[in-house]
Structure formats: C-alpha cells, structure tokens
C-alpha cells in the first residue's frame, strides 16, 4: 500500500517536474528570441521607446502621451531653438511612462529643455494608467531605475517578470512587423513625432469627467518635474489645445499649483478659443493634425525662446 502510494506520488512528481522543465525551458528560449528581436527593431512605436530610453542625446525632449507625440514637431523646435529635439510621447501612455523614460534618460545625460504635455484629465483615477505600464516591461530587467514605477502595475509584477515571455505579452506581431522594411514605410516618424493627417469634421462639444484624483499620478508628476529640475533641465509643462469644452479640471488646478511651487513654467491652452476656431487644425477632439501641430509647436518654441532670453 505504502509502496503503491510512493510510486504514485513519485509518478506525479516526475510528471510535474517534466512539465515544469518543458515550460521553464520553453519560456526561457521563447523569451530570449523575443528579446533579441524586440531590441533589434529600428523603427516603429516600440523602437521609439528604446531610442528614447537608451539612445537619444537630444538637447530638447518632448514628453507626454499621444497628444505630445502628435502635437510637437521636432524640426520646428530645432529651427526655433537651435537645439536637437526628440519627441518621446507615446500613444496611450501617460505620466508613469513619462517619469520612467525621464529617469532612464537622466541616468545617461541631462537635456537642456524638457517639455511635458499634460492632458486635461491626466490625474483622473483609471486602471488603464497602471495596465499601460506594460509598455515598460521589456526594459524592467535592464533598467533598474524604472523598476519601482513598473511595480506599480500590480503587487505581483516582480514574480510575473520571472517569466522571460511575459514582458513581451501581446507584442509578437508588433515585433515581427518592427523587424521588416514594411514598418518603416507604414508610419514614418520625424525624431519621434508622428503626424496626423486627417481633419476633424464634428462641431465642438462639451466633454466632462467627474475626476477622482489618483494621488499616485500626482506623485509621479511631481517626481517628474522635481527630478528634471534637480538635474538642471529647464522644464515646461503644457496643456496643448483640445477641440472640446469642459467645465472643470482638477488636474489642471493641481498641476498648476505644483508647477508654481517648483517654479516651473506652466502654460494651459485647453481653453484657447483662438486655436479652437481652427477646426481644420484638429484630427479629432483631442489631437491636432500636422498643420495644427506645426503652428502650435512654433507658438510654444517662440515662448520657450522668450523665456530662455529673460
């Protein structure tokens, strides 16, 4: 009886062991392959994050989400400021992502000018802010400085990241495309900037959110501006134009106050009626198109120049 039990337990342990070896081995090999191809990309969305974190040495850097990415044209900035500019903005990634990318950059060098674009409701509580930290998972292993930010994603992130495949979850096709020539012609970027070419057709409307402030996001924003300032960069926080009206934004109030406390320039264009008169400059209610971006970048660059001269 005892022997039979031992045999059965032994059989189970053997099979579980075999399965574990296959899973761990498969995970290791597949993870290695994915990592190799991920960092071999030379264009596209994923590559731009790698470039921002590991390569760029531009004097002026743009940070933010899709609004930053589509609103600030580096060539216009370069022309106005005479500084090499790179746009690190990434679609759907907000302040956590920006702070992580900044940390990696500051570890390598100090940019002269840092511009952070904020959304009207950036500090609003949303699980998406944490979910989207997955954009940083491939860098967790090699970038110690961003680990505390990535670990905000969930209390178990450290354990999950023991898997070599997990950081590349849902990225296999993007990695595959990123390694082909097709990617370069698909969506070209100009020093990180991706132009939007459509024109918004709808009338201006009101869009309100009952904001519930996430203190973690506020902390991250504060950390962004204080560390950039401490490093010696000149920091500008901008709320770029939108094609909708809103009643109230706690985010803007808080961000303005934090900037004031830290002596950081804060410009709010979210209610700029002069810009909102030009519907042809918008691609949708939250994004400027290329024409709008060129105009707005010039406007901001001139203001930065004036600030610099003062």
């Amino acid at each position: 009886m005892q022997q039979a039990l031992n045999n059965r337990t032994g059989r189970l342990l053997y099979k579980l062991g075999l399965l574990a070896v296959i899973i761990v081995g498969g995970d290791f090999l597949l993870g290695k392959v994915l990592r190799y191809w991920y960092f071999k990309q030379e264009s596209g969305l994923l590559y731009r994050t790698t470039y921002a974190m590991e390569v760029t040495h531009s004097d002026a850097l743009i940070f933010g989400s899709s609004r930053a990415n589509h609103h600030y044209h580096p060539a216009v900035m370069e022309q106005q400021l005479g500084m090499r500019t790179y746009n690190t903005g990434r679609d759907g990634n907000f302040i956590f992502y920006n702070t992580a990318v900044l940390k990696s950059i500051l570890k390598r060098y100090t940019p002269k000018v840092i511009l952070l674009d904020l959304d009207v409701y950036t500090f609003n509580e949303s699980p998406e802010n944490y979910d989207r930290l997955s954009a940083l998972l491939p860098y967790y292993k090699t970038h110690e400085e961003i680990r505390d930010i990535v670990e905000l994603k969930s209390p178990f992130e450290k354990i999950k990241l023991q898997s070599a495949v997990y950081p590349f979850n849902s990225l296999i096709f993007k990695i595959a495309v990123g390694n082909t020539e097709m990617n370069k012609s698909r969506k070209t970027d100009l020093n990180g900037y991706v132009a939007l070419t459509t024109t918004y057709k709808n009338d201006i409307q009101e869009y309100n959110i009952e904001e519930k402030i996430d203190t973690q996001l506020v902390k991250s924003f504060t950390s962004f501006i204080t560390s950039a300032k401490a490093a010696g960069s000149k920091v500008f926080v901008v709320v770029s134009p939108i094609y909708y009206q809103y009643k109230r934004s706690q985010t803007i109030g808080l961000a303005r106050a934090i900037c004031q406390n830290n002596r950081v320039t804060f410009w709010d264009y979210s209610r700029d009626t002069a810009l909102q008169q030009h519907r042809e400059w918008f691609a949708d209610r939250a994004h400027l198109n290329d024409e709008g971006a060129q105009y707005f970048t010039k406007l901001i660059a001139e203001k930065i120049k004036q600030e610099e001269q003062q």
Binding site: L19, I22, I23, G26, L30, S134, V165, Y166, S170, I172
Partner: peptide
C-alpha cells in the same frame, strides 16, 4: 505519449503568456 502531452500543456501555458490578456 507523455512528451507530446506535456509539450501540449506547455504550449498552452506559453500561448497564454504570449497572447493572453492580463490587464482587467
């Protein structure tokens, strides 16, 4: 075949890790 069986289990686990949705 125990190997085929285990490779199938492992493939499902890896497929979950690779293309599963973990957020929300």
């Amino acid at each position: 075949n125990v190997v085929i069986r285990n490779v199938t289990y492992a493939s499902i686990v890896l497929l979950i890790l690779l293309i599963g949705v973990f957020d929300g």
